[in-house]
């Protein structure tokens, strides 16, 4: 039977194999994704992001279990970094999700960033499409441990959960631009530790200063994920946010933005690959570079000339 049909039926070997092909940018994957596209758009996408060691995997594990209790099926994409030197990776997020392995209503896939810098991997979008077409109702996307500016998740998820922990820095961290701006739900994990209350207050003060908030005020929730404390509230708030997105029309707007981003990225990738090919065909590089180094030409004219040549 063909892969597309098997994925639609939820066959796990087929789902896994198609994800591998998408990750490897195998042209066959695109053929399959074309056929699956009409089945997508049903899943609700939840992003989980936060610094390394903040408990994203443990929180993901517990949120999945709570969603399962509520009868939902869940796909999980867990992203870990790849080595900038060897391209290798250790994907360890599953250590915290061991007992989900045997649940037929859950499918977990670990991915390395394969060099991407925004906290996700290039294949994340296509993997979401595959899990969506396979019928998973919720898809959780756990980013790599992020610093301050890896905000690709907001372009990908419907609801973004930002995880903080006590002890990472003073309140100026909370008012910096970047990941603290992107949360729809904030979680202060490891809340049994000293300083948790302060983190909550700092987050609340930061949120109060956000002028363009709309009708959704992001809640700040305390959890101790290893002990499953506070998880029901987190899932309640996610579901509440889902309802808000749907009723306010915001979901449509977010998804439109996502598709627009995805199209632009893919078009740019393809165009840039074509241009790179074209430039390597003509061997004008050397002479041009020499002339730039010898100050006979300036790089700005050279750029304009090449671009005008390509766009004709």
């Amino acid at each position: 039977m063909d892969l597309v049909q098997l994925v639609k039926e939820g066959n796990r070997v087929a789902i896994a194999r198609l994800i591998t092909r998408a990750e490897n940018e195998d042209p066959e994957a695109i053929v399959a994704l074309r056929q699956l596209y009409s089945e997508t758009g049903k899943a609700f996408l939840i992003g989980i992001t936060g610094p390394p060691g903040s408990g994203k995997s443990t929180l993901t594990d517990k949120v999945v279990k709570e969603l399962r209790k509520r009868g939902k099926t869940v796909g999980v994409i867990a992203v870990d970094p790849s080595s900038p030197f060897t391209g290798g990776a250790i994907l360890g997020d599953r250590i915290r999700m061991s007992d989900l392995a045997l649940d037929d209503g859950v499918f977990i896939r670990s991915m390395s960033t394969r060099g991407s810098l925004g906290g996700l991997s290039k294949a994340t979008y296509n993997t979401i499409q595959i899990l969506d077409a396979a019928g998973f109702e919720y898809i959780l996307i756990e980013t790599v441990g992020v610093g301050q500016s890896e905000v690709d998740i907001i372009k990908t998820a419907d609801t973004t959960v930002v995880v903080s922990v006590p002890g990472l820095g003073d309140d100026i961290q909370a008012i910096k631009a970047g990941i603290m701006e992107i949360g729809d739900v904030f979680v202060v994990n490891k809340a049994d530790r000293e300083g948790a209350e302060r983190v909550v207050i700092e987050l609340a003060q930061m949120l109060e200063l956000n002028a363009n908030m709309g009708d959704w005020f992001p809640p700040i929730l305390k959890t101790v994920a290893v002990r499953n404390e506070g998880i029901v509230d987190v899932v309640d708030k996610i579901i509440e946010h889902q309802a808000y997105l749907t009723s306010s029309g915001e979901l449509c707007i977010r998804r439109k933005e996502r598709i627009s981003n995805e199209l632009i990225n893919n078009i740019l990738n393809k165009v840039s690959a074509k241009i790179t090919d074209k430039l390597s065909e003509e061997n004008f590089w050397d002479s041009q570079l020499d002339e730039i180094i010898e100050n006979k030409r300036n790089p700005y004219d050279v750029i304009d000339r090449i671009i005008n040549g390509i766009l004709q």
């Binding site: 790849s82 290798g88 990776a89 250790i90 599953r94 250590i95």
Partner: peptide, 11 residues
């Protein structure tokens, strides 16, 4: 990992 493989470790 150092050989360039993607390694999944489950504990």
């Amino acid at each position: 990992r150092d050989a360039g493989f993607e390694v999944i470790y489950t504990g």
